[in-house]
């Protein structure tokens, strides 16, 4: 199908998404902002899975199955992460990760 599209297009798009996600994780003080960056990184990984699977028809479905597992884990991670963030917010009234570094109630 994709005449003129190579694997490199998709891998480099995924690289761009990964780097933006890691900048987001590195610079945020807001715990929810860090979770947003992690979601971007997971999406970048998923693009790689699906792209490599598409350009290798023998493993076409394996890559997609792995991407589904990643999405499942991302959902679980988001729910648990946000529950922890809300618990911290209720406890300390802030979600600044630097203010929570003591890890003590």
């Amino acid at each position: 199908m994709p005449a003129g599209l190579t694997l490199n297009h998709f891998v480099i798009l995924s690289l761009a998404l990964f780097l933006l996600g890691s900048i987001c994780v590195l610079t945020r003080r807001n715990a929810i902002g860090i979770l947003l960056g992690i979601e971007l990184i997971l999406n970048a990984a998923n693009i790689n899975y699906v792209a490599f699977a598409f350009f290798n028809p023998a493993a076409h479905y394996d890559g997609q199955v792995f991407a589904i597992f990643v999405i499942m884990l991302a959902a679980a991670e988001a729910v648990i992460g946000l529950a922890i963030v809300l618990a911290i917010y209720n406890h300390l009234r802030t979600i600044d990760v630097a203010a929570n570094e003591t890890l003590k109630g």
Binding site: A74, A78, L86, I95
Partner: peptide
């Protein structure tokens, strides 16, 4: 899952922690 689930939950969490949510992007580390 992403748009209908994770994104909605995330926006909920952002709204529930508003006020302190728009912190400065700069990080001292």
């Amino acid at each position: 899952i992403y748009i209908g689930g994770i994104l909605v939950v995330t926006i909920f969490a952002v709204m529930l922690t508003q006020g302190v949510a728009d912190m400065n992007i700069s990080n001292r580390i």
